[in-house]
Each structure stands twice: as C-alpha cells, then as structure tokens.
Design a protein around this nucleic acid. Structure first.
Lengths: 244, 244
DNA sequence: CGGTGTGAAGTAGTTCACAGCG
DNA sequence: CGCTGTGAACTACTTCACACCG
C-alpha cells in the first residue's frame, strides 16, 4: 500500500511553511477560498483585500486573515493579497497540484453525479475506478471510465494506487465495501451512505448525509414556526455561508 | 407565505422541554441518533446504555449523554434509555412527525438522487416539486413527481407551501434560483452548487459541496504522505464518525 | 494612511469525573 | 451497584482591536 509515487511537490519558493498544523476549521474553508480566487483570477483581478475576498467567500475578514495567516504571510500590509500568488499557495497547501486517483463504489445517481464532478478537469482528482454490484451496469461508460464489477475492487485500487475511496452504495453494503477498500490501501473515505462506518485509527472518514442535512434544516424551520414571536428572528449567521 | 398548516405537535407527555436552545453541534447529531435508534428498535432492542448507543453512533458516551440531556431527562439512572421512548422524543425534537414539503431545483444526477432519497418513505419529507430548465426533461416523472419548467417555480412553491428548497443546479444558476425561492416564501435552503449564496438574515442555508469534501480528504492524505514519520499516525478522531 | 497579521478576549463544543438516583 | 445527568476543566474556534509595516 501507500504507493505515493513521489509526486513533484517542493515547488517554487516554498517558504517551508505548512508544517504548523492547520486547524480543521481552516482546512475546511481553504477549498472555498481557492475556488473564489480561481474565479476572480479568471476575471482578471490582480489584488484583493481581506475584506473583499471575505465577502465573496461568505466569511468575515478577521476569520479569513487568521486562516491565511496559518499558511504564511502572503499578503502585503496596506495593500492586500496578490490574487495569483495566493491562489497558488492555497493550491499547494490543499494538494491541488497533485493528481489524486479516486475510486467510486456504487454507480447510482449519486455515484454518477460524483463521477462527473470529480472527473471534471481543473480539480486535482481523477476517477480511476467505478465499481458497481449491479451486473446490468457493468461495462457502461461514465465520464470516460468503464463500470467494473465489485469483484474487481481490489485490482482497480491496486492498479492505480488509489488512496481515496468514495462509498455511494446503499447503507447495507457500506461497511463491507469500506473494509475492502481499507484492506487494499485506501486511507481516506468519503461516505454517502447513511450509516456509521467503523474504521481503524489512522483512517480518515468524511460523511455526507443528505437525509441529515434536510433534518437539520427542518429542525431550524420548526424552531421558527414554534415560536415565531420572540424578538425579530434570532437566527444566527450560518456555520460558514450566509453573509447576514 | 408561511402556510404552516398548524400541524398536530403538542403530542403526548411533552414535558414542555425543547425550548432551551439546543447547541448546533447537538442538532447535527440528533438525526444520526434517531436513525440508529430506528434500526435497533426494529431489531427488537428495548433498552440501551449511553455506552452502547454511543458506540453504534460513532461518538463517545459523554457526548451522547450531554446531547440527550439538552432534550430532557429521558434516561433511567443505573439502567439506560428505553429505546422506543427516546426514539420518539428525538423524532419530535427534529420535526420528524411533521411532513415537510420540499422543492428540488435542478434534476441532474444529484437532483435525481435527492428526489429518490427524500421521497423515500419513513423520513418526514415529501418532494412536492421538481424543477428543471432543460426542456427535454419537462414532464418526466421521478419518484412519482413530474418535472416542471423553471417558470413554474413560484407556483409550485406556493401551491404546496414549501419552506425548504434544494438547489442542485450548476453554480452559475444557483444565486438566481435561490433569490426566486426566497421571494416566494422558502426560508431554508440546501445548496449543492459549488457557489457561495448570499441571503438576507433569517434564512438558513446549508451547503454540501462534493469538491470541497474531496479536497479536505486530499489535504489530510497529503499531510500523511509529507511526513510519514512523526510518532505513529497523529490522526485525530474524525469530527463525528470514526470510532478510533 | 490603510490593510495585514496577531495577541488577547470571548464563545462554542468536548471531555472529565463524580454526585446522585433508581 | 451501575449508569445517568452535569458542573468544571479543557480544547477548538471566532471575533476583537490594534500594533506594525509597506
């Protein structure tokens, strides 16, 4: 396992930074900053202040500055940030430059959506395997990749040295698929199945649960309807988005 | 707007609780607790300790107990929690009993997946509208609901008094769709488009971004590969899942 | 002067550890 | 006795406010 074909990294200036351990909350925002920077870079913007960038990203400027300060001092006092440089530094930090092979198990609507998404150019991901247990779908081609049977899971992962696996199966199959992925060297899992995965230490699992997201919205909605009168609205700014 | 057809609520005992403002972090876990309780209830389990339930939910028992304590004292000291009762109380808390009408805009793979998911029985949601701008797809029926043109957005929302909207369009259309949804009374938005939505105070936006999730995994993966030697693995238990 | 970078203060969430009750 | 419920300690994150520098 751990093929890690010694990617290039150690790019240009590389002020050795990064090591400091970046807070999880910051890491979760870097991809948004990067995406926004990409778009304003394409729009020809050369320089931004933390204030401007923060607004575009839906966060406040203090948070943005603190986040960026964890990566290093990439701004210029009294001026702001050079868009292109900052864009590059964040890209490096989040491993955008690398080319991450990803295996997707379960080619239902969700798997399909993800295959299209991750397969789209520009991001640092490459779908190297699509696995499904439904024999009807074997051989079908999605975004240039053929769907292969569940039995091929191990060989597909090994073949491309994938370390990131996506589980888009029904909940009932999720743990078994997860175990098989881990067995052949995958150490990062994105789980769309509504089930709790049990994994050994050292494995990184992230969960996306559509049902849970709806429930959370429903909860807040209910709160508002329960006691519509209390002051004005007592909603809080959202966890990340929402300019308020 | 705000049809809120005065649902039943104020069910059985209802020890008046709930009001106390439940922390966001707790709210985000209630749906998982509920799902796990559903499954062990079906399996015939009558009583659980915080320890057991916590393991099934992938959290530690102290966190679970504190979470539950925000809803009220539904356990029995020295014994544990009666599964059915706790299941019911959490359901009430997260508005499971109610029937939430949901409108989904954008019927690509993602919209499709969600239509199937939210449409599935058992949860408290009902897909009352599927909207797409692609004329090819108008009239198509998904999970028993016909796809209607973008122009019908307002009437569909009004017709069913939907307050929850799902945006599964390309990023370029997201803000415009969002504005239209808000205009006709939607106050909770689930956004799958990779774009930052700007909304007025009082609107609840949640974001699910597949690309961001992959980037976060890639970041951690990169960390591990950069400095594979440091102690043993210095991975932290995941934000919610992961038993470690 | 203006905007970054950052200590310090504030807030939210988690974990500990144990009192208290069935 | 065993397990819940919870104050208290701790950790993580956010926001404030201002020193500092281009």
């Amino acid at each position: 396992m751990a093929k890690a074909k010694s990617v290039v990294r150690e790019v240009s200036p590389l002020p050795r930074s990064s090591a400091h351990h970046i807070p999880d909350a910051t890491v979760a925002r870097l991809p948004i900053y990067h995406r926004v920077l990409t778009s304003i870079l394409e729009a020809g913007v050369v320089s931004v202040s933390s204030q401007e960038l923060a607004e575009l990203c839906g966060v406040n400027s203090a948070k943005l500055r603190k986040d960026l300060s964890h990566l290093g001092s990439y701004g210029t006092r009294g001026v702001g940030y050079r868009v292109e440089y900052l864009h590059f530094q964040i890209a490096r930090e989040i491993g955008f430059a690398q080319d991450w092979p990803v295996v997707i198990v379960g080619v239902g609507n969700l798997g399909n959506a993800l295959a299209g998404y991750a397969g789209a150019a520009g991001r640092g991901f490459r779908v190297v395997g699509l696995i499904d247990s439904d024999t009807e779908r074997i051989g079908e081609e999605i975004a240039g990749v053929k769907v292969r049977p569940l039995a091929d899971l191990e060989s597909v992962v090994a073949e491309h040295g994938a370390t990131i696996g996506v589980i888009a199966t029904p909940a009932s199959a999720a743990q078994a698929v997860c175990d098989r992925l881990l067995m052949c060297g995958v150490t990062s899992i994105l789980n769309f199945a509504p089930s709790v995965l049990t994994v050994p230490e050292g494995v990184d699992v992230r969960k996306v649960d559509l049902g849970t997201e709806l429930q959370i919205l429903a909860f807040h909605q209910q709160q508002r309807q329960d006691k519509p009168r209390e002051k004005t609205s007592r909603r809080k700014p959202q966890r990340l988005e929402n300019i308020s």
